[in-house]
Design a protein around this nucleic acid. Structure first.
Lengths: 132, 132
DNA sequence: GTTAACGTTTACGTTAACGTCAATCTAAAT
DNA sequence: ATTTAGATTGACGTTAACGTAAACGTTAAC
């Protein structure tokens, strides 16, 4: 049942990205797959990292930001100071994400607004249409 | 009471961006301020456009996308076909924004998760700390 | 009247995030 | 043995979104 390893093109097609993109993420230090000889072999954990990167991209994060966030997942934060520093970073990210959420909701509200006014304009246009 | 016009540096400092950035947005067709001689004069409407652009940026939109969205605000959609096409675009944007909202909420939930586990690790670290 | 403070245009530079070859390797199928 | 299908490493190209610097105009203050 341990079929949780993937080739680069499997991941590429699953996430609809190119292999170049995946290798680029590795160049930038976001992924570190194993090697089977010369070939890359991606684990389930690598796959999860990739989903995090792509989710980050969808909400407008840079690769650097995704890398920072991924670093927060790793439980290598032994001593107290490091843990407190991490907590600070997490809190900061949360605040930023919440601001972004506000922006998104504003934008959505305005889309609703446009939609309504557009619907009404359409209704009026149909009422005043003589050729039917 | 008609003090709703701004110089380029007023807007720049208000939004903490450079004048270069504002001129760049004009180059790209996102702003079209009036001119008083050679100088640009920005209206309240221009200011609103700028806030929309910057909000767009914060949620990860390209300038092109912001431009598309700004175009939706203008009520120059006379006939029925154009209105229906606009409605389609609005609907499409809404769906995309909602997906983005999902991504954001996932990310936030995971930040909460990290925060919790980090807190617990810290608590344990403090309990086991001998030098106090 | 000249120096400062702001504005303008023009143009080249920069960074992030890949795209696009080209050359090579390699493993499996015919 | 050799074609074929996927993999690898360079290396250069590209686009978006500005930064940066030079050269010049204008107007308000001293």
């Amino acid at each position: 049942m341990s079929e949780n390893s993937y080739t680069i093109s499997q991941l590429a097609s699953e996430f609809s990205i190119t292999t170049r993109t995946i290798r680029f993420y590795e160049e930038k230090g976001l992924l570190q797959p194993q090697r089977k000889g010369q070939q890359r072999l991606y684990s389930g954990a690598d796959r999860v990292r990739l989903t995090l990167i792509l989710r980050g991209k969808r909400i407008g994060m840079s690769l650097q930001e995704s890398q920072d966030i991924i670093a927060m997942y790793d439980p290598e934060h032994g001593n107290r100071e490091q843990l407190q520093q991490l907590l600070g970073q997490v809190e900061h990210r949360k605040l930023q994400l919440q601001e972004q959420l506000q922006d998104l909701q504003h934008m959505l509200a305005e889309m609703d607004d446009i939609q309504d006014r557009c619907q009404q304009a359409l209704t009026r246009a149909l009422e005043e249409e003589p050729q039917l």
